[in-house]
Design a protein around this nucleic acid. Structure first.
Length: 396
RNA sequence: GUGGAUGUAGUUCAAAAGCAGAACGCCUGGUUGUGGUCCAGGAGGCAGCGGGAGCGUUACCCGUCAUCCACCCCA
């Protein structure tokens, strides 16, 4: 038997899991502060709910199988289609506009590579049922507040108006163009010209690129910027970028992407307005705008920029030694004071217990004796006799 | 789906067609209830799996599986 995880599936050991949970707790607080509500949907959906929504490529990557009752089922592939299902299914119970955040795993049977997994967490915020640019502005503002709260400073939100593509070109062409243009920053203008020219010829390709580059800021852009600044956001975060396209072809209006010079590997998140997708199950037009945080990249960038350092990641503060009949009671009292406290449960020599604390990076060890408490600072090696109240002050 | 690389100790990696090694980690002791440093000792390997060439190989060849990287697409 080979002991390993499935390709594209990951374990998160405590050190990593703590960082992820810390980042999530920060983001959730920001989402809630904007009145966005949590939503959770099942891992499995009827296959027919998900099929036909992601194009041929997506279809191939979807995990599908027959359950034990013979039903054709598929695993959550993104959080947008389930959202569309929820909107239709609970039309009477959910007043629009519906602002929700959703943080769940999705599964895609892609070939893995750096930063690309088969199971990964999506962190989405969406406003459903409003065509207002104020909703776009709110989503962008909320995204910016999220990155700020995580500690990011040097980032920009690039904004473009997808409708300018469809104004300039026919729909089918627009999709191809969008996909090609999106790569400009990554592969350079020349390669994009090559790609476009195979579809439409060199002359037309040049023409397209010229049109893109000379694209002027649209009215929607000016409006959304002024709204965003009313949310108290510094306008310096915002940047018009006519070359921004985003690969997904379901966007219909403003599109945006968060980039940081400190993290050149790629965007830290992105989103846009997609007015034609949510209504598919409800059978009517339901406008929507949303943003997706690139969670794995965010964690990687935060690590690189040392944004976790000095933060309370919820780690254990004190190890209580198992050296007295009082140990469990003392542990209980410390917990009641709000201190993350681990009780050493094995009956081993004190040096083993200290070594355990050291290896786990627990900063304090409380050596409990029948009639005194001795607190040892594992960093300095110093120890002192203390009372419970004093401990609370020292270790916090 | 396409292309490239790599599979040797728990981990990261060496060497060499002729007895398989290091570092880190782990265990024990120095120090009998005070960790992390230091010193001494110890455990741990069907060399991914299958086949072939060869007197003989973990090393060469073929297949297979796995992992990594890139492309496609996307987050």
């Amino acid at each position: 038997m080979v002991i390993q995880t499935l390709k594209g599936f990951r374990d998160f050991l405590p050190e990593e899991a703590r960082k992820r949970q810390y980042a999530l707790s920060i983001l959730k607080k920001v989402f809630l502060s904007y009145g966005f509500e949590p939503l959770e949907t099942p891992t499995l959906e009827y296959e027919e709910i998900l099929t036909g929504k992601y194009g041929d490529e997506g279809e191939k990557l979807m995990y599908k199988f027959e359950d034990l009752g013979g039903r054709r089922v598929a695993m959550r592939y993104d959080q947008t289609v389930p959202l569309a299902r929820v909107i239709a299914q609970y039309a009477n119970d959910i007043p629009l506009p519906f602002k929700r955040y959703q943080i769940q795993n999705v599964w895609r049977a892609e070939n893995t590579q750096r930063g690309r997994y088969r199971e990964f967490l999506q962190v989405d915020i969406d406003t459903v049922g409003s065509p207002s640019l104020l909703a776009d502005a709110e989503i962008i503002s909320l995204a910016i507040r999220g990155y700020e709260a995580l500690g990011f400073k040097n980032f920009k939100v690039k904004i473009n108006d997808r409708s300018s593509f469809s104004n300039l070109f026919s729909d089918e062409e627009g999709k191809v163009i969008a996909r090609a243009i999106d790569k400009i920053e990554k592969v350079g203008e020349e390669k994009v010209l090559d790609e476009l020219s195979t579809v439409m010829g060199m002359k037309a390709a040049n023409n397209v690129l010229q049109k893109i580059n000379s694209q002027k800021k649209t009215e929607s852009f000016f409006k959304v910027v002024s709204y965003i600044s009313k949310f108290g956001i510094n306008e310096d975060y915002l940047e018009f970028d006519p070359k921004l396209a985003r690969g997904l072809d379901y966007y219909t209006g403003l599109i945006f992407e968060v980039k940081s010079d400190d993290y050149p590997a790629g965007s830290l998140g992105g989103g846009g307005r997609y007015d034609d997708l949510i209504g598919i199950f409800a059978g009517q037009k339901i406008q929507a705008v949303g943003f997706s945080f690139g969670f794995d990249r965010i964690i990687e960038a935060m690590d690189e920029q040392k944004l976790f350092e000095g933060k309370d990641l919820g780690g254990t503060r004190v190890l209580i030694t198992n050296t007295s009949t009082r140990s469990a009671e003392v542990a209980d009292e410390l917990r009641n004071k709000g201190i993350n406290t681990e009780l050493y449960v094995d009956d081993k020599e004190l040096d083993k217990q200290l070594r355990y604390a050291d290896k786990k990076g627990i900063p304090y060890v409380l050596i409990v004796e029948e009639n005194k408490l001795e607190l040892k600072n594992m960093k300095t090696g110093e120890k002192e006799e203390v009372t419970l109240d004093e401990i609370a002050k020292i270790v916090k």
